[in-house]
Design a protein around this nucleic acid. Structure first.
Length: 414
RNA sequence: GCACAGGUGGCCGAGCGGUUAAUGGCAGCAGACUGUAAAUCUGCCGCUCCUUGCGAGCUACGGAGGUUCGAAUCCUCCCCUGUGCACCA
């Protein structure tokens, strides 16, 4: 029979960084029962395999899942392969395009690879909701939807807003919360985790479980992580995200660019430091005992190390410091191999067209943009301001340190 | 199906026959300042090419045609969205 920690100790970890728990008393009770019976709780979180590139925002929830896992409970990683045929309307003012089966499968695979950087694969139950949703026939679906009313659905903020704004709401979108709720029934969940934006969907699970004679699940909501701008939620499409697969230097640098204020919620949501310790840091920063920059550097180092290991994090920190504080050129810059033919200048000469080089390196989105940046004196070559669109390449292969604004890369032209 | 209102660059939103690659706001990028912060100020902000010039060409205002020297702006058809109507009629 598995042993569980005393309930208060479990709650101490589980409550950290949770935005809201419905209801805390029930969770406590359920934990008591589980401990007494030696039965792990079934904890579910659903993921839409729509965005194969996970960012730190997604990890807030996964870290919470891991907490349950660490405490010995059963974590169910639910791939919403079926629901993503609909596309969750959350956070959207427009109807999503449905994905194809192939896209979903491919996305789910990448998803898992990334998720297991945080979760223990051995202790995770991976499920797909097509398993049960795909089997529902039309009649069963009708019976399922009969448990909800139209006005219940329209109460949901997203729908309400769209309705008020006279924007389209497709009928099938109303099915999303119903299906997510049914997932909880099918899996007999004790707890479901989700972001605060999932409140409505999570609640549907409780509602349906009651109808199916199950104890309504406990809901634990995690806050939505703000992106680099500190205003909007972290999202790849808003361009304010830090991907968990980004190279260490990139990750570290982005973390350093957040505002001082934002850093506190990152500490809470993205690290294992105890809340009490974080509060001390905050006090020290306010009183001037510790410079906020150093606290931020520690944050960036901690998070980077979590994904890339201590050594990589230290290297990232060093090159950041070198590059931005001393405005130097770090040693371990990313090298990109570039074919001379792709960046060749006028015919017959050995010159390189700088704008093309910037595009090849991914530092500029287009040649036109690259040219503008050159004109704006934002480009440096080997530390020297580059104002000429043509660069003479002495001998091939040539090694050039190219810098545009905050980012720099080494081009190896051959 | 009918009536009405709409569909403009990443988003919001002007323009309603001609210096309109398209006012303005947001977002973004770069420069200054800093702790690569934030805030602020300044510049940029469709793409391609080169002889990098206040250069040339191409593409763009839901789609397809048309009128015109010239259309995001006018006409026709189509697609999409919202609202209202839809028993007696």
């Amino acid at each position: 029979m598995p042993e569980f920690l005393p309930v208060d100790e479990q709650l101490d970890l589980l409550e950290k960084g949770a935005a809201e728990i419905i209801r805390l008393a029930d969770l406590r009770e359920r934990l008591e029962e589980s401990r007494k019976a030696g039965r792990p709780l079934r904890v579910k979180a659903g993921f839409d395999p729509t965005a194969p590139d996970l960012h730190l925002g997604h990890t807030v929830l996964m870290r919470k899942l891991r907490h349950f896992q660490q405490l010995g409970h059963t974590v169910i990683f639910l791939v919403g392969d079926f629901t993503s045929l609909i596309g969750d309307p959350t956070g959207r003012n427009v109807t999503r395009k449905p994905l194809t089966r192939e896209q979903i499968d491919a996305n789910a695979e990448t998803y898992k690879q990334q998720v297991f950087k945080i979760l223990d694969p051995e202790a995770t139950e991976v499920r797909y909701n097509s398993e049960w949703l795909g089997k529902l026939d039309y009649e069963q679906t009708i019976r399922l939807t009969a448990h909800f009313t139209v006005s219940q659905m329209l109460e949901r903020d997203e729908f309400h807003k769209r309705f008020q704004a006279e924007q389209p709401i497709s009928l099938h979108e109303l099915l999303y919360p119903v299906m997510q709720g049914y997932d909880s029934v099918a899996l007999q969940c004790d707890v479901e985790l989700g972001g605060t934006d999932q409140r409505f969907n999570l609640g549907c699970g409780r509602e349906l479980q009651r109808h199916y004679g199950q104890k309504p699940q406990i809901i634990l909501m995690t806050p939505i992580l703000e992106g680099l701008d500190g205003v909007q939620k972290m999202s790849k499409s808003l361009g304010n995200a830090i991907g968990i697969n980004e190279p260490p230097a990139e990750m570290y640098g982005k973390l350093m660019s957040i505002s001082d204020e934002l850093m506190w919620s990152y500490w809470t949501l993205l690290t294992d430091l105890k809340q009490s310790e974080i509060d001390v840091l905050r006090k020290d920063a306010a009183s001037g005992l510790q410079h906020p920059m150093w606290i931020k550097r520690r944050l960036a180092g901690t998070i980077t190390a979590g994904f890339h290991g201590d050594r990589a994090a230290t290297a990232a920190e060093e090159s950041w410091s070198w590059m931005f504080q001393q405005k130097g050129i770090p040693e371990n810059l990313e090298e990109v191999a570039v074919a001379f033919a792709d960046v060749a200048g006028p015919n017959g000469t050995s010159q390189i067209r700088l704008s093309k080089l910037l595009v090849q390196l991914g530092l500029a989105a287009s040649g036109a943009e690259a040219n503008r940046k050159i004109a704006e004196k934002a480009v440096k070559l080997d530390g020297e301001l580059a104002e000429n669109p043509l660069v003479s390449a002495p001998t091939l292969p040539a090694r050039l340190v190219v810098r545009l604004g905050k980012r720099a890369k080494v081009a190896v032209v051959a």
